[in-house]
Simulated scan of single mutants.
Amino acid sequence: MPSWQGKSKGSKFGYSIFVFLLKYGGIHPAYLLLRFVAFYFFLFSRSSSKPMYRYFRTKIGYGRWRSLCSIYRSYHVFGQTLIDKVVVMADMANKFTFNFDGEHNLREIVSGGRGGILLSAHLGNWEVAGHLFKRLQTPINIVMFDGEHQQIKDYLSSVTGDRNVNIIVIKDDLSHIYAINEALNNKELVCMHADRFLPGNKTVAAPLLGHDARFPMGPFLLAATFRVPVCVVFACKESSTHYHFYATPPRQYHGRRNQGVETALNDFVQLLEEKIRLYPTQWFNFYDFWE
């Protein structure tokens, strides 16, 4: 079984150092320090580096040396996305540019007045994408695990301020289901990842990169149950200052619930695999994803 436990690495002190550099030196000193931080994780974080090596070696098909280099590259790009998140959400001065490929698809959902579901994965920079959703001028609800330590969350909230979105935290009492239901009944957008689950969650299987993997059933069950338009969205980093945003044409999943779940799953996995092959070092699942 995949071993993700719903927690993210890092400390309040580490975040505060980078925020200090961003405020008083800009993004380049922060990126420079990040090179050393990424190299530290490359050398000493065996629990994440070992499954990453297998991912690059056996799923992407890289050679040994390229796989090792890609591990470091993945840590480095991941750190950049965290820095970029703070910069964009705190409205710090920056030179970021964006391509919006398929933004009209999201506007089509908004103009339809029925609400909708946006599915994504831990690929690229979800936080930057979520912040840019305010361009749509409609209420946005982001469903997520409560995976960061509370002191880190409180610190980042004090830095970035209002995120212009409503966060729906996944809880054991299933209260998040009622919150999602309310948001969709209010014709709002609901955004969620569909590539991670915690032990005990219901899952569905599909082949990814030539090997069977398990995905959380919840997002696809919601798509089949509410029958609102569904888009798959990603925001991937293409250079130090440029992101490419993707949004697929909206689709609705009708038919019996099991059939709708399977169709939604297969559509999502196919699109996810396409983007993983385009941006292999930006799929930030640092654990054994495949069974």
Rank of each mutant, 00 (worst) to 15 (best):
V19I: 12
R54A: 13
K134M: 11
K134D: 04
K153A: 04
H176T: 12
A247V: 01
Y178C: 10
S240V: 11
N266A: 14
A93C: 00
G10Y: 02
S111C: 02
V19W: 10
I140N: 01
Q151T: 07
T160G: 09
V233T: 05
N266H: 12
K202M: 04
G112I: 03
C231L: 00
V143T: 11
F197R: 11
F36D: 12
S67K: 04
M1I: 05
V86A: 05
A206S: 15
R214Q: 08
G147Q: 06
Q137T: 10
P229T: 01
Y287I: 13
H244R: 06
V86G: 07
R214H: 13
I17L: 14
P139L: 02
L68K: 15
I152R: 12
L119V: 03
L272Y: 14
V269H: 08
E274M: 07
P199E: 07
I170W: 03
A206I: 09
E148M: 15
W290N: 04
S70D: 12
H28N: 09
N94Q: 13
V228Q: 01
V233G: 00
L272E: 12
Y243S: 00
Q270M: 08
N164L: 04
P139M: 06
G218F: 06
G14Q: 14
E127Q: 12
V86Y: 09
G102I: 00
R257S: 08
H149F: 11
Y55L: 04
A93F: 02
E103H: 01
E108D: 08
N201H: 07
F100V: 01
E182Y: 08
V169M: 13
N141D: 05
K153C: 09
P51Q: 15
N105C: 00
A38T: 06
Y287W: 13
D267W: 00
V228Y: 00
S240Q: 06
L174N: 10
N266G: 07
D267E: 09
T241Q: 12
K50N: 14
Y53T: 13
